[in-house]
Design a protein around this nucleic acid. Sequence first.
DNA 1: TTGTAGGCGTTATCAT
DNA 2: ATGATAACGCCTACAA
Lengths: 332, 332
Amino acid sequence: MSEIGRLAGVSQSTVSRVLSGTTPVAPDKQAAVLEVIEQHNFRPNIVAQGLVHGRTFQIGVLTRHLGSPFFGEILRGIAKAMEETNYHPVFSLGSENPSEDRKALDVLLARRVDGIILQAPQAVNKMNDEFIRGLAEELPLIVIGRQIPGLEKQCVIVKNFEGAYLATSHIIAKGHRAIAHITGTLWIEDAAQRREGYTQALRDAGLEVIPELIIEGDFTEVSGAQAVDVLLSRREAFPFSAIFAGNDQMAIGARLALYHRRIGVPEDISLVGFDDLLGTQYMIPPLTTIRQPIFYMGLMATQSLLALLSGEPFHLPAFPLELVIRQSVGLR
Amino acid sequence: MSEIGRLAGVSQSTVSRVLSGTTPVAPDKQAAVLEVIEQHNFRPNIVAQGLVHGRTFQIGVLTRHLGSPFFGEILRGIAKAMEETNYHPVFSLGSENPSEDRKALDVLLARRVDGIILQAPQAVNKMNDEFIRGLAEELPLIVIGRQIPGLEKQCVIVKNFEGAYLATSHIIAKGHRAIAHITGTLWIEDAAQRREGYTQALRDAGLEVIPELIIEGDFTEVSGAQAVDVLLSRREAFPFSAIFAGNDQMAIGARLALYHRRIGVPEDISLVGFDDLLGTQYMIPPLTTIRQPIFYMGLMATQSLLALLSGEPFHLPAFPLELVIRQSVGLR
DNA sequence: TTGTAGGCGTTATCAT
DNA sequence: ATGATAACGCCTACAA
């Protein structure tokens, strides 16, 4: 920057001022400086700026699984919210291994990110509620997909229980008596809560909860397909006529497996998903699912974080769920 | 850091030395310092370290679409390669809008990333070959999915033409005469090259290339399904008995659409994909596809970049493709 | 072995 | 309006 100043015949501070625009600068010098900057296509070093300001303008996002459409949507929301700001997201991939998870967080912290978005952090070990509460005192923090007692206002959660209850009740209302459920990764709260909603709906309808009809998947399409295989292999002993999949990805996998076995949906088996993923209804119509505003969850989480950052008040809205029936489902 | 030194009764430099381990420090002082560090759980500021060293230990990754399984695999490779290093990836999302694409790159540059991985950059406007060559002179750079003349050694590409040729020839060898093709986003080289391989294989077999049988998709499942709908709607005028999908995601979409119309695969229509995506063969068996070592492409690209960074010699291996036939395809 | 001091690229506060 | 100058947090000669 001083080099630029030298070439333009001004001081380094003037260059800084031209760039920041905080203080008026004589038009001729202004022009001279911009000229030199242009020639050398100089860019101010954000890192050094950060040193001065005490911030990095980076938001850490601790996540898992970048290849999923679900996460992709959340990310779109996060990126969208930061679009016109100076902030930039930095992703760190957690894993199912708790220590790796913690290490990923440490990297973010060492980089002095200005705030953190925790995506469905594991509730074990060093990542327990207590730890996260402590973390929240050190820096602005938003948690997606997990409710931390005492930190409710900074947690983005979804009415998983209600959604699953709604979905299951809908299936029951259509006359089904034996309903299977493919869960997501159970240590992720969303999955556990959806399972609860499912079992509660069964109980409230006076139906029996059959453990053999509940298969744990991992939110991926493959696990959905595999779960169906397991269910079908037991079908003699544990018959069922409908499946409630813990998310749309598993619903897609399940649908493929059913198609493959030439089992009609919904004629032979009814299928309900969760998320209302982009395009799902096009790929596997007809589809009944629970709509979840994923994109907005990412967006709002980020906006709240930015508000936290600037000390502004904010409130995370409640994210509603909705039963969506695409085309005529014909659940029987 | 000086605060830590004060509390431990040593100078700030000694604290630095304890942390870096570059210079011996008296055991007692060492202990005292570590003690204080522990108490205040102090972490050195990587940003400030970067200022001194002139590097940020960040690798910029310009990408598009974080929600795709294909990109997820590349990313796994990138992350894996950086795992035991001090480097950390920073992602910036490009878009189909060239100016956005450029802006995403600028953010990375302003953050003074030490190196850049360009993921299938658009070959237009400011991102032309000339520009990228210039960029490569400024900082270590690896390009995935596009061949830049004069920069071949830093480009990770795949034998797309050969793979598509192989796939199409295989289908022809099974007796098909009218083969449809669903392409990926055509401004991405991979997609264009695969289309070339497809048309060349047809020509070499003396078959006619029918434009109406070539549908442009965008690598997503939905586009695969939609393409099939279009193809089927024209089937009277332009019949076909096989489909070569430009990637596995579109193959999945196509398969779903076919299943939905109760069109058997491979009895009625044969389907071949490209990528050998994780789990695909499980979800839609039997599947014939071209195997592409996606994970290793990300891994090797990153290792090469790190080598570039440290001035070590390196060579990007050729990434082979392979025709994979899962189970008995029964292409007729 | 340890402390002092200078510098990395900016911004902000002073004078001028 | 503009130029010095002091931070920001850390590393590293250099000196002791």
